[in-house]
Design a protein around this nucleic acid. Sequence first.
DNA 1: CTGAAAGCGCTTACAG
DNA 2: CTGAAAGCGCTTACAG
Lengths: 341, 341
Amino acid sequence: MPPSPVRSRATGRITLADVARAADVSPITVSRALRGERAVDPELVARVKAAALRLGYVPDPAARALASRHSTHVALLIPMLSNALFVDLLEGVQRTLRPAGYQTLIGVTHYDAGEEEQLLREQLQHRPAGLLVTGLQRSETTRALIEASGVPCVHLMETSTSPDVHCVGFSQADAAAALTRHLIGHGHRRIAFAAAQLDPRTLQRLDGWRREMQAAGLHAPTLEWVNPAPSSLALGGTMFEQIVAQTPPVEAIFFCNDDLAQGALLAALRLGVPVPQRVAVAGFNDLTGSDQMVPPLTTVRTPRAAIGIAAAGMLLALMRGEAVPASCVDLGYEVIARQSA
Amino acid sequence: MPPSPVRSRATGRITLADVARAADVSPITVSRALRGERAVDPELVARVKAAALRLGYVPDPAARALASRHSTHVALLIPMLSNALFVDLLEGVQRTLRPAGYQTLIGVTHYDAGEEEQLLREQLQHRPAGLLVTGLQRSETTRALIEASGVPCVHLMETSTSPDVHCVGFSQADAAAALTRHLIGHGHRRIAFAAAQLDPRTLQRLDGWRREMQAAGLHAPTLEWVNPAPSSLALGGTMFEQIVAQTPPVEAIFFCNDDLAQGALLAALRLGVPVPQRVAVAGFNDLTGSDQMVPPLTTVRTPRAAIGIAAAGMLLALMRGEAVPASCVDLGYEVIARQSA
DNA sequence: CTGAAAGCGCTTACAG
DNA sequence: CTGAAAGCGCTTACAG
């Protein structure tokens, strides 16, 4: 005889209580056994796990979040998904977080500090278990919001010497300096730096180039071409056209991003400007297509997928309350010499 | 005198009960007033809203999900984020869903039916309020999973005549046929179709090309070049090289995707094959950079951002239990004639 | 139109 | 090492 289910709101879902009944233990023991929390008699653990498997039990994330005050969400704040760099980063993050039972909530800031703050507020309402943010620089309010939330946070793409901040990345300035040395090593003297978007990492690359040029006694303010507009192939073409018209002639152009450099290479083809004979062209990031350009683009390969994986791994440790070996991981970079410079 | 908070687990968060106390009504009235559900005295609504605002009340999504059995998450299943098409789609979706209070959970299927099924299972555990899936074709199990979940679902990128399925897209076959007519109209007779990835939408484009070629009496099996490998610039170059070597000579190549076509254009430059004089080249989707190629790429512009917006809008209506004017929305396409064909 | 009660499915805090 | 009780912050179902 079935019990008369007055006022039943049951979802039909298999619950912790069902597993407890099947394993003949209390619900709390099931909870502990399944989460591997605290010491539980190994024999009970086995019994519970068998029962859970048999019944096809799946914990309810909402109930878990409500009771524990932590969801299984990780908020990821990135500037732009149309930059392939961040797609690779995201893939690395998800590949690490998903098997560990965490969902990634993506927030696209469009390089806007206000939007980042707004997104963070929204995400924080969902009590994320962890935070992954791009770069170290942000509004004071956003910084305070992160701090006050107490949610573990890892910073992506840059490095820091502060022991208080967790980060995984590489030195944008050093990478730019290395490419600049490569260009100088090829005998170029008048090496322009062309930048768009002007986000913090772009400016760090500008610094790296400037540092190297000054050390070699080659720096001149007229070699700096910066444009706050969003980065695009078309803009790269326009900038190339302008820079190539300069006198005395520029011998090499270091674009802060492969987008820009690819656009420059296409403009060179249109204009009939031989690269690298008349002017060498280099980029940054080694994005899709850079190896296919005519001529193939010299650039810096950056380990964004590895950054995503390592940062997610570090966050996993922090969320579990484990110690991390180092608060900041430097994953380096690699100059890729092709034919354009 | 403060109450002695024995066994307190309070989060410090402002709750519905706090607002109820402040507005001097019952918690359930606050709940109804804030959600706009059922009829509530306008004066009470105003009082509640004022109190909520004053206290800075923010509903707890976990509690809400647990009680209502629906989260505020929408699961979005897409094949790949490295295809810019889906980035645009995603942006459109988020731009519509976020202001309405929904979070987008992105699942990347990598064009794999098994992975899609696995992702869907995981997402469904989180009781999403809505589902957004790419295309109409999927495994029987996945289809059954969606059906059984009872979660509103909108299909993206394709159109259907079935009244049972909600979708927003355009006819991939018609779009391909239109581009094929454009090529035929330019006097080309031997028009090859070159495809990679071979996902359902690619095959629909193949059908559209085939239909048009047959209608014009121009179809030949040797004009079909299909490669199951993932689409890339490099593959486009390789395919171009192969197709151009064919005798009798192919006069035009319709690549199923701009990636491939861009790679072909770059290969043509490398090989010194004049486009469109020796062979015309066309693509599909009008991706970033296609207008910058040398020569600029003739292609079909597809309304993916608009699809994201419209599909999210339709899903919003379905989630609210509202009727939608049409179960399927066709957003069309546009042939973009540039210099490559 | 409004509310008291119960319940969603977990985990925390306390006790033993 | 294990458990009974309470509670997380909402909404459903019922009643009036």
